[in-house]
Design a protein around this nucleic acid. Structure first.
Length: 470
RNA sequence: CUGGCCGUGGCGCAGUUUGGUAGCGCACUGCGUUUGGGACGCAGGGGUCGUGAGUUCAAAUCUCACCGGCCAGACCA
């Protein structure tokens, strides 16, 4: 009997497929105000895992968490010219509060460089106060004209790091350290997404930055997604907020600042990178539920065996969930877990149990195998690591086989219809960049030939990676 | 803001050409049978057809205006 597909095939209608995954895997819904989102418990579980992994790396890099206000005086935004120019079109502004018109409107933060700059100025006096390494987990609001859940919402959750350094070299090195040790490390090793790292062109730079570095990932349909950014802000904000210190010789100096962030956009990236026609696939190191132990039916102590297996897995540090809802059919439950992308499913039923075995099913490639009941807990951690590696390898293969080296702007435009194109920056230049932009193809980043991050955009041999982007 | 498409139970849609007073699938509720890959039977609940005005004996259907959404742009984590 032919059944209607649970998800719309992605080749036909990728946006629709994406919406289906979000809804049917119970990750998120659209909020009541246009462009906002409601994150469901299962989706939030994935976000919590992202937060935990990223936060640990941020602390490893020496930054500390703090919190700054949601509301920012409008006048703060106007202190840095490029910054206000870049953000003013998408600000949500509060003009009324407490039943009356406010003397000065208050903006809902689109990012926090300005408030944090104000406080850095108060907190920094001596060179001994530097570097000041701050981070906050918060929500921000940007009134985008076009929104897509997780990828570009009016309100989103993120982490924003803000640091001040005594020297330009110190700021520059830290921005690069965050890009590599926090963002790339997390994305490659936890999300199993083989991101490119590189430098943004002048055109793509953050409003108020002197240099923007980014992680770029390829989605299942060949389009690019900017997964995270790390900015050198030069002394732009230091000047605007008068952030100065006295150096070891007693003279007044201005600091150099950075800012860097990743957001709930990574949730969208995860879905668009690893999802297939059966739903989401979550890499094991990220998964909030790594293994689901599924009771096929509750005969002859099947449930007891399943509980025991779940407990043993928990004891070896596996994040496990028991599914004993035997009032729902096996097929329905198996499909639900596939939609949610749980990496490993252990099916416990009377037939297998009679042989002293359980069935182990891998979500990422659908393979099934039998494992002796007694050796499940010992075997699973290695299987999860193998899945993690296989998912990264598959995503890397997909990216590489959809990336080509080209020599002309026309070839770049053509190649970007299905994937990434690498073209010498000397050939493309800002003129070529503007030409490609007319066909919605943008320079994702500039790289050195070995894939590393260039120090300036004037270096010889730079390659521009161009693509269509979300 | 520009261009194209679309607004009908929670979701997805048919019905609009040719006006006659709203229907299907999924989901939901109850009972029973099921449960090793998306169950089945029977019985139910739920919609002033985006909003307003107009034409008409009669409007989901025709006319006008407005509002909202989706897709592709410009902007962006």
């Amino acid at each position: 009997m032919a059944k209607a597909p649970i998800l719309t095939p992605q080749a036909d209608d990728f946006p629709r497929w994406y919406q289906d995954v979000l809804a049917k895997a119970e990750l998120a819904d659209n909020g009541p105000v246009r462009g906002t989102m409601v994150i469901r418990p299962y989706g939030y579980g994935l976000w919590e895992r992202m937060v935990a992994e990223v936060d640990a790396r941020i602390k490893e890099a020496g930054a500390e968490n703090a919190y700054f206000p949601l509301f920012i005086p409008e006048s703060y935004l106007t202190r840095e010219a490029q910054h206000v120019e870049g953000f003013s079109p998408e600000l949500a502004v509060v003009t009324h509060a407490g039943g009356k018109v406010l003397d000065e409107p208050v903006v809902v933060r689109p990012t926090s460089e300005t408030v944090i700059g104000e406080f850095m100025a108060k907190w920094i006096n001596s060179h001994r106060d530097l570097p000041l390494l701050l981070n906050q987990w918060a929500n921000v609001v940007r009134w985008e004209l076009r929104t897509r859940i997780f990828l570009r919402t009016s309100e989103f959750l993120w982490q924003e790091g803000h640091t001040a350094h005594a020297t330009e070299a110190g700021a520059s090195a830290y921005a690069l350290q965050i890009l590599h040790d926090v963002y790339r490390d997390f994305m490659v090793n936890v999300l199993a997404m083989p991101v490119l790292v590189g430098r943004k062109t002048r055109q793509e730079r953050f409003a108020g930055a002197t240099n923007t570095l980014a992680c770029e990932a390829m989605m299942g349909d060949g389009k690019a997604l900017q997964m995270g950014t790390s900015h050198e802000l030069g002394q732009n904000f230091a000047k605007a907020f008068d952030i100065t210190y006295q150096d070891a010789h007693g003279s007044k100096q201005m600091v150099w600042t950075t800012s860097w962030g990743v957001s709930t956009r990574m949730m969208g990236g995860l879905i668009l990178c690893h999802g297939d026609d059966a739903g989401l696939r979550v890499p094991p190191r990220l998964a909030s539920i790594q293994v689901v132990v599924l009771v096929i039916r509750d005969d002859d102590g099947v449930k007891d065996a399943a509980v025991r297996i779940a407990d043993e897995l928990k004891a070896v540090g596996v994040r496990v969930r028991l599914d004993d809802r035997t009032d729902t059919s096996f097929g329905r439950r198996a499909t639900d877990w596939e939609l949610k992308g749980v990496p490993l499913r252990i099916e416990v039923g009377p037939r297998d149990l009679a042989n002293g075995e359980v069935t182990v099913v891998q979500r990422h490639d659908g393979t099934k195998s039998q494992t002796a009941v007694g050796s499940v807990a010992a075997a699973v951690p290695a299987v999860l690591e193998a899945i993690q590696a296989a998912m990264l390898a598959a995503a890397t293969e997909h990216r590489d086989s959809n990336t080509v080296d080209v020599a002309t702007v026309a070839e770049a435009r053509e190649a970007a219809q299905t994937g990434f194109a690498r073209i010498p920056w000397a050939v493309l230049g800002e003129a070529g960049e503007a030409e490609l932009a007319r066909d919605a193809v943008t320079v994702r980043c500039l790289q050195l030939p070995d894939g590393s991050v260039p120090v300036s955009e004037d270096e010889p041999d730079l390659l521009a990676v161009v693509a269509r982007a979300y």
